[in-house]
């Protein structure tokens, strides 16, 4: 087994594990912002590792896989941010376990 092959196995396995962890995190976390922590960071890194690992198995696929990775890294935090903003703006969706909430204070003060 060459070095590249070991690296490919390691990256793919680790990526799959991180993707699993993101699913578990979304399932277990208590409120929407914390779900987002698992759903954004873990899926992004998981996809990066998994796709790059598969690309090492088939080197000719690498450019296309890197393109998918690039799109995911660029777009995933944006959609997550938009959802977080929506969750904070909508009173019925907002979680009530926040210890400090500067955003609500600054909105309340502004009006």
């Amino acid at each position: 087994m060459s070095f590249i092959s070991i690296l490919a196995h390691g990256l793919t396995g680790l990526g799959a594990l991180v993707l699993f962890a993101s699913g578990l995190g979304v399932f277990r976390m208590p409120d929407v912002f914390n779900k987002m922590h698992a759903g954004t960071k873990a899926t992004t890194l998981g996809s990066v590792l998994f796709l790059v690992g598969l690309g090492l198995f088939e080197p000719s696929w690498m450019p296309k896989l890197l393109l998918i990775v690039l799109f995911i890294v660029l777009t995933n935090p944006v959609s997550s941010h938009a959802l977080a903003r929506a969750a904070h703006n909508e009173p019925s969706e907002k979680p009530d376990n926040l210890i400090i909430d500067d955003l609500a204070d600054s909105k309340g003060g502004g009006q």
Binding site: A21, L24, G25, R28, M29, P30, D31, F33, N34, A38, H88, P95, N97, L98, I99, I100, D101, D102, L103, A104, S106
Partner: peptide
């Protein structure tokens, strides 16, 4: 997330 009880102490800071 693999802890039995997830340690969280959330807050929004500017």
């Amino acid at each position: 997330i693999f802890r039995p009880v997830i340690p969280i102490k959330p807050g929004i800071v500017k």
